[in-house]
Amino acid sequence: MDKLTSIWNFIRRHKYLIITGVFAVIIGFLDENSIIRRIGYEREINHLQTEIEKYHSEYEESTKRLKEINNNPEAIEKIAREKYLMKKPNEDIYVFEEDKK
């Protein structure tokens, strides 16, 4: 009974500190908007922003190539030769493959 009385006296003396600690634990770890989840959300936002930048640069590059293809017939020939291995009637094409080890 003496231990129970000493615990009760400790709680009565430090009730505001205990309530503040319980509140901090609930807000910091257990709540739906906890600090841990907010940190995870910030990481995900940063990751998605880098992806947006990557896709934006790809879009700019593709738009640039499309404009070049529309304006320059030599660019169409270059792409046809390199990408689709097309050739003129009097040409031979040699394709070299690298060993992937």
Results as ranks from 00 to 15, higher is better:
80 A>R: 01
100 K>N: 03
71 N>I: 02
78 K>R: 15
57 S>H: 09
19 I>F: 02
97 E>Q: 11
56 H>R: 09
74 E>R: 05
36 I>Q: 05
98 E>I: 13
20 T>H: 10
29 F>Y: 03
46 N>V: 11
26 I>N: 12
12 R>T: 12
2 D>S: 12
43 R>A: 14
81 R>S: 03
88 K>Q: 10
18 I>S: 05
60 E>T: 13
74 E>V: 02
4 L>V: 09
74 E>M: 02
6 S>M: 13
38 R>V: 07
76 I>D: 00
78 K>N: 15
23 F>W: 03
90 N>H: 14
40 G>F: 04
75 A>Q: 04
65 R>Y: 04
7 I>V: 07
84 Y>W: 04
43 R>F: 15
72 N>L: 03
54 K>T: 14
51 E>F: 05
79 I>L: 04
59 Y>H: 12
25 V>T: 06
35 I>K: 11
8 W>A: 12
56 H>M: 09
25 V>W: 02
35 I>E: 12
73 P>R: 00
89 P>H: 00
60 E>F: 10
39 I>V: 15
55 Y>V: 15
2 D>W: 08
39 I>G: 01
55 Y>Q: 06
36 I>C: 06
92 D>Y: 14
86 M>L: 02
69 I>E: 06
96 F>A: 05
31 D>F: 09
34 S>M: 00
12 R>H: 08
91 E>W: 05
79 I>M: 01
31 D>K: 06
51 E>G: 01
53 E>V: 07
47 H>N: 08
16 Y>N: 13
46 N>G: 07
87 K>L: 01
5 T>A: 08
70 N>L: 02
8 W>K: 11
35 I>Q: 11
28 G>W: 00
87 K>D: 01
21 G>H: 08
65 R>H: 06
14 H>Q: 09
51 E>T: 04
31 D>Y: 09
32 E>M: 06
93 I>N: 03
57 S>P: 04
18 I>V: 07
86 M>A: 01
79 I>D: 04
51 E>V: 01
59 Y>V: 12
9 N>M: 10
3 K>C: 13
90 N>C: 07
70 N>R: 00
47 H>A: 12
73 P>M: 03
50 T>N: 13
25 V>D: 08
95 V>M: 05
45 I>C: 03
68 E>P: 01
38 R>Q: 06
